[in-house]
Design a protein around this nucleic acid. Structure first.
Lengths: 194, 194, 194, 194
DNA sequence: GATGAATGAGGTTTCATTCAT
DNA sequence: AATGAATGAAACCTCATTCAT
């Protein structure tokens, strides 16, 4: 019996997600420019040609990955910490950030290796800028609620530190003393007495 | 009458430096994998083939850039701040770091886009790891001299923050409030009362 | 509806054979090193890139040609003359050899121009040596059965002569008195009275 | 004190010979097409550019090598055996042939790898054909004097055998039983009773 | 939809030859 | 004359994308 249109759509969406996951793995480990469509298709277990029935181009795959990953991370980052801000909340947010980073390690790898390239950014630039702004704003709100003298600058610093730690950790997941660094960050930002 | 070996050597060194500078610009802005040897040669104002009389491959050019830039930065970073450590010294070191970052902006761009890719790292990995360790050690010594409770972790945090700020600044040199962030960092690390 | 794996395989085998034939022609007439992949692709009527979906490199094409041609020739050479050895058999073998040479003229050309180059031999050396040994052995068995005084040396001489004649004939197929030379060889080796 | 024109010429001729020897070695071992002008210059101990003041092109070097080597070999081959022909003479000629082959091993290598390629032959074809004819004629005269039934065909066979043995020997100088094969050839051609 | 063969533009690299000194 | 840097055409090879089935 033939599948219903609904089933079709479900299959398509599932496969689309499969391709994106495969592409994320491949792009993250080889770099977007060096990775080949063949590798992605192979990792996804489909034929090369089929990929083009889901995405217009290799670059379109990258765009989809970045947009969806950024959306996921941002949602997870903001939703989880809506409501009132307290030092306990900020600590939760910090600790949760690194859970996110761990869960989306490939995304971070890819993101770091991609975001410096204007060519790629041309298509993604706005999305990334907006994403950074949104994260910074969230941090700023928290710091603001905690009576920081200059929450805007504080948010920049905090984000820079999160980003830096995430990057150093991504470079060497085994060797990096993440837990202790995280504790120190919590101590500095979320348990300070002003 | 032919040129003397000395003359030849002088020409070669000049050209070599020229190529490296051109390659750094091109790699930094297009990404190593996307950049073409043609672009590098054009930027350097030479024929494509000549590049291969100076470097064995495109990758060898990258290696030379990274090694020499890392050496430059590290020398500049450590030598300038040898001797006794004081809070004033640490402030100098922080401020000087960002002068370095500004002077080697292309190197940072390239470095950020390259260091996540194992393929590239295979050849460079050790050099980069050593470089990071050296920088972290320098910071640690300073913090240690300033009686930090946990200088090792503090150095990680400080370096992460420098790296993060540098990266965000590199992404948007015009819009980033570098001066104020830097002041805040100085206030936090170099003027604190314990 | 897609082709079945079997259909794909059939197409691939056909194409592979087509490429090998084209490459043999081109390599034989221009020499392996001077021949270009473009020429081979053109001769085969395919795009350059496709060749690399069948063979890993230009050199791999050469290896495939040599291995398959040597196998063909050897099979044809030995199988046809299994069983008892008589002078009539040796005559058949000699005459058949030159039929083989005629049928595989391009292979002989290529073989002669290639087998002196250590670079190429590095990959093929063993195969060629084994091939020569196998041919010499076959000849030796025949001579041995015919009560030659020193069949090993006789085989060397006979093979050298076959090889030499084949080569001179290949150099000038029109002008060479092949039939008469062949008759003389038959007279000398296969109809002698001891 | 400046050199006299005569000294100049002597130097030039010496150097020319030096280049040819170097080129012969390089061409013989890498094949003409694969060998590079740089390799030749290096082997000769001169700068690349200087080679072009002695020869118009890489191909001109090959032509000079081939012409001079063929001339050398032919002279040595014919002059040494002028005069009356006897079986002892033919034996001498055969034995001397292989001394020549040993002395000019690189030339034979090169010659075998080059003579199948029409591109190269276009310039050399006539010279080679003439050379082969001259050798064959010499052999023919000897056989004729020894009352061979068909000296023309006999000469072809003998030359083919010499050529074949030379080639197999060149392929594996260590392992080839040259002395015994040579003895057998002498026995067959130069000591036979009709 | 699904396959993987096929295309062809363009990438890296080599190298005979020329040129400036 | 002599050097070796410099050129640029062309080689081999890769790969995003299209196509026939």
């Amino acid at each position: 019996m033939p599948r219903t249109p609904l089933q079709f759509q479900a299959v398509r969406e599932e496969r689309r997600a499969l391709i994106l996951q495969a592409a994320l793995r491949v792009f993250a480990h080889h770099g977007f420019a060096s990775a080949t469509v063949r590798q992605v298709a192979q990792e996804a277990g489909i034929a090369q040609g089929l990929l083009y029935s889901y995405f217009a181009s290799k670059e379109a795959v990258l765009r989809a990955i970045m947009e969806e990953s950024m959306r996921d991370v941002l949602e997870s980052f903001t939703e989880a910490h809506a409501g009132t801000s307290s030092e306990a909340q900020l600590e939760l947010l910090l600790r949760h950030s690194f859970v996110l980073i761990d869960q989306h390690r490939d995304f971070w790898r890819l993101s770091y290796s991609v975001r410096m390239q204007p060519e790629v950014l041309a298509q993604l630039g706005e999305a990334i800028t907006g994403w950074i702004t949104a994260i910074t704003s969230t941090l700023e709100e928290h710091l603001s609620a905690l009576d920081y003298a200059d929450p805007a600058i504080g948010a920049r610093m905090l984000f820079a530190q999160i980003d830096g730690v995430a990057q150093h950790y991504t470079l060497d997941p085994e060797g990096y003393p993440l837990a202790r660094v995280l504790d120190a960050m919590v101590a500095q930002y979320a348990r300070r007495r002003h």
